[in-house]
Nucleic acid binder design. Structure first.
Lengths: 342, 342
DNA sequence: GTGAAAGCGCTAACAA
DNA sequence: TTGTTAGCGCTTTCAC
């Protein structure tokens, strides 16, 4: 059954000719329009079958301005949080008849900007985005100018008004810290992402607040600035602190930071959790992990994507309420082996 | 700086009017054509800037039949092998000016078929695909009929002639088994994926061959049929074998199978590796794994995607040699804690 | 319930 | 070097 290449793809005109109707009628059939008699519909469908006709999305888009393409702009698909999120988004998109264009911004606002232009050029119907930072507002502004709806996932931007789904950074942070405090830790460090990212700011503030409530001192040298990427951790500042003053626990603002911190600690022959406890936001892939080690606040990543796609499509199809919606997804503390009591 | 929505997107006509040239000249400029004087080019570019003009990909596609969209059809983005592969594909695609449409087939040939139709409708320039099974040849045939180049990643299909990148299932299998045999294992079971998948067939054959070479008996009850999805493992057949005859090691045809097998063994209070050793094809994410446990044959997943995109683009842009290319990527045995000697 | 005409935004082919 | 014409495949609008 070796079929030959089709000379050129069938169009509605080919179908129309074969079915002895006008192209317009074919268009009505492929769009499930009401105003077609059953008999002509059947005739047309037979022709469609026969010629293996597949509608041309670009031509459709050109007249209708509807592409049925969604885009997901995340920072890195290799972060298990985003992997699961992407799968959720793709599942919902497929279910609703949309396709998914995937973009990795690598926390880089220029790369993000490139992608936004590409997406406008493509004519995507909507965008789900984890903005690389507050400065992304300019990129989102361009989407807005071009009338493309978008939804912010995981991270917010103060100046941007739109639908959003995010986690509860404050209560998650509090839960991690109180777990550490209850385990007897008094000197708790934080390694954070850049403060131009909303989750970093919120986790920072929650760290300050929680330590304050528990009457623990907040020391500047216990707070390190890092980034959310999978990169080597620089914790020399922490390790240069004399042992007696050195933190006994580290709160990492995300999974990548935690991983790389632990790797670095091990390099220095510092044991986790015996010497220093480490806990963080966002789980690794616990379904694939046979010996889960990290104590984490886990967020429902798949839900972020699934719900995000759902809300975005509602916005696109104008079935969403006019006012913007904020969804806060709950997180869950999972205590594992990377934290212990002192 | 709150910009208003643009009434409607700028077109080459708007640019042409503003720059006092013909639309065709604008087209030449945005396509980097040689035949434009520097002065008009500058004039046009100024107009483009001023109006925030972004070319409409659909319109371009309609005339040029070039979409600059690639698609990656994999079975599940949540498998770390595919996550890394996807990232590699996306990186190369971006670098070459292409966008990436992501599709999860879930090893389901019908889902795959849906996607293929979607992709044809979209007018993608090419497809990278890990076919769900040999029956995917019909889906690929449709791509061929529509003149869309594709490349097979990881899995081959006997009847399909095209570019392909795959791992070395035979030597990988041999290496795992010889590691086990050298560790003293004589009774080695295999839990395989469906034989309608090329890698499963190859690993099966290599299993038979290697045991034969080492003069170990091949018992039917040591060979289990499973699937490559992340699903519960059914190993009751193995466990119903009396202890004295029971395998002391299990070779799992992929990472999901291994994970779920180990989980199941643990449920039955069988320790890995003390009671049974387990090894498999494809690593988990070792970069993210703090206590890697699984003994694996690791394949260069990122390379599969990166090279795959590269070869596909060469095919699209007709810079590839006319004959189809087969690339075999090497794999590496990584011995960890899930295997031990008997 | 069906069809004809026009045009979406762009580029190929040709002309100047 | 620049412009004109036609048309890609479809849907919108309006007519019948």
């Amino acid at each position: 059954m070796k079929l030959e290449r089709i000379e050129s793809m069938a169009t509605i005109y080919d179908i129309a000719k074969l079915a002895n109707v006008s192209p317009m009628t074919v268009s009505r059939v492929i769009n499930d329009s009401k105003n077609v008699s059953e008999s002509t519909r059947a005739k047309v469908n037979r022709a469609i079958q026969e010629l293996n006709y597949i509608p041309n999305s670009s031509a459709r888009y050109l007249t209708s301005k509807k592409s049925n393409i969604l885009s997901l702009v995340i920072t890195d698909i290799r972060n298990p949080f985003f992997t699961k999120l992407a799968r959720g988004a793709e599942d919902k998109a497929k279910q609703m008849g949309y396709r998914l264009l995937l973009c990795n911004s690598d926390e880089d606002i220029h790369k993000e900007s490139d992608y936004i232009n590409m997406l406008i050029s493509t004519g995507v119907d909507g965008v789900m985005i984890t903005p690389s930072e507050d400065g992304s507002s300019e990129n989102l502004q361009i989407l807005h100018q071009n009338d493309i709806p978008f939804i912010l996932l995981d991270r917010r931007i103060p100046s941007v008004k739109c639908d959003e789904i995010h986690g509860d950074s404050r209560s998650g942070t509090r839960r991690i810290l109180e777990h550490l405090i209850q385990s007897g830790h008094q000197r708790i460090a934080m390694i954070n992402g850049p403060l131009k990212v909303s989750t970093a700011r919120e986790r920072h503030q929650a760290y300050i607040d929680t330590l304050t409530v528990h009457q623990l001192p907040i020391k500047e040298e216990y707070i390190l600035q890092s980034h959310f990427k999978n990169d080597q951790a620089n914790i020399s500042n922490l390790l240069s602190i004399p042992i007696a003053e050195r933190p006994t626990a580290i709160f990492a603002a995300n999974n990548f930071i935690a991983i790389n911190t632990i790797k670095e600690l091990r390099k220095q022959n510092i044991c986790v959790p015996e010497d220093i406890s480490v806990a963080c936001f966002d789980d690794l892939d616990s379904l694939l992990d046979l010996n889960p080690f990290l104590t984490v606040v886990s967020q429902p990543a798949y839900q972020f994507g699934y719900l995000g796609a759902e809300m975005l499509i509602e916005r696109i199809e104008a079935t969403a309420p006019p006012e913007f919606r904020k969804v806060v997804l709950p997180s869950e503390l999972i205590v594992r082996k990377s934290t212990t009591s002192v």
